[in-house]
Design a protein around this nucleic acid. Sequence first.
RNA 1: GGCGACAUACCCAAGUGGUAAGGGAGAGCUCUGCAAAAGCUUUAUUCAGCGGUUCGAAUCCGCUUGUCGCCUCCA
Length: 475
Amino acid sequence: MTQEISIYNTATKQVEPFVPLAPGVARIYCCGPTVYHFVHIGNLRTFIFEDLLRRVLDYSGFTVNHIVNITDVGHLTSDADTGEDKMEKGAAREGKSVWDIADYYTQSFLKDWERLNLKQPSAWTKATGHIPEQIALVQTLEAKGFTYTIPDDGIYFDTAKFPRYADFAGLDLKGMQEGHRIGVTEGKRNASDFALWKFSPPNEKRAMEWESPWGIGFPGWHAECSAMAMKHLGDTLDIHCGGTDLIRVHHTNEIAQSECATGKPFSRYWMHGSWLVEQPTADGAGGKMSKSSGEFVTLDLLIEKGYGAMDYRFFCLSAHYRQYLNFSWEAMDTARDSLKSLRRKTDPLIARASAIASDNALGWQKRFRAAVGDDLGFPQALAVLNQMLKDPDLLEGEKGALIRDFDAVLGLRLEEKPERADTALPGPLMALLDERKQARADKNWKRSDEIRDLLKSKGFGVKDNPDGTTSWFPV
RNA sequence: GGCGACAUACCCAAGUGGUAAGGGAGAGCUCUGCAAAAGCUUUAUUCAGCGGUUCGAAUCCGCUUGUCGCCUCCA
């Protein structure tokens, strides 16, 4: 039994009810990272959006088949005409092999995935693990006459043979041709044509290259996603996700090659997450956070600065996935404080969780479901949570149960105890705490306050509870 | 050059035709030896600007300004 949800479909530019090909089953494919460097928190925002989609589908009763790919084959860099690709560039930068680079950054990525409480997909797929499938796709296209060869370059897809090519992204092909295209490839019939298979340069040994019917080479930019998605999910997927930048080129090309190969629609729905952006500053920095342009913020950096992975997840939850989200340290502080404050309210309630039984509680659940089911309305869902917590007519046990229910989708790990050192303070400091306790008993406020200041300078805050006990916390 | 998005309080950010959600921060009060924490209360006659449509607009239309994105690897 599934609950109806609506999602925005890039293909139709409107929010529509989600109706999968097979009732009750959602097959989704998400474009993952190219593992030539660390992923940054902007990339992570998209993965969080996809996780939210995944969780809403789970929560709504769908059986979800979720594939995420890892691109471990280099795509050419835009400004390099030497055949150097991103993976090789990364390898050169760090003096390692491309395979080591791929492995290292894949592990790093998976660690971030885990820390952000992103659900494991049904399967991870790697581009290098699907070379035969990609070759087969190109062969099919070749047999159907959609390709042509540029000598010493590669096999190209002729976009003129797919009349609907420009429809998906609403492209103005003429305008594009007159525009600022960079590095136009000699021999292409149309500016929008793209490589399906690239030949290795004759006198050069590439770090990653494979045998193919066309000789030694490597797959083109877009082949992997079509090949892997169709292998694992069938010719027609339910939802295909990615960042908005993928719409124009990557997804447009995926549609062209997939639909020409199978003659069937490639994906019923397309969803795209918007950017995490940085506000322009006086020194000119700002705009889209970009992996290829150098400086970027990683999850590790956030953690180094004292934020938790859940703080970042909460930050992303506070904005709708199709809106730009402005990143700033002040905004991170807000997110961290908000989550902390939320947990203060939810912790004691979760401990007393009973069941969702009353009409009132059911009503709150319904409101929450409606919010997340309406194109992932998480900012509203968070508002529902906060309002629910303030409802004086709701039993605490039910509040606890609702929090658990909501967090199955929010994924904020509200049920888990925050990791903190509840053990004793370092010996000498513990003695000071005891001394302060005595001082307070003696109403020696001066000494008591001195000790409090001293502990604070050592990094420990102290608070006296109404019941006479004293607790401490790191500051 | 082409195409497109966005502009809501101190900050983050919902709302997209019916009279401004929610959070954080701030302020006041309660509590407290004092703090801290917590609880309560409070914070936009107004949605970049100017016109228009309408009984009614932040929401629709037009123009202006500003910011950003895609067109080239990109989440």
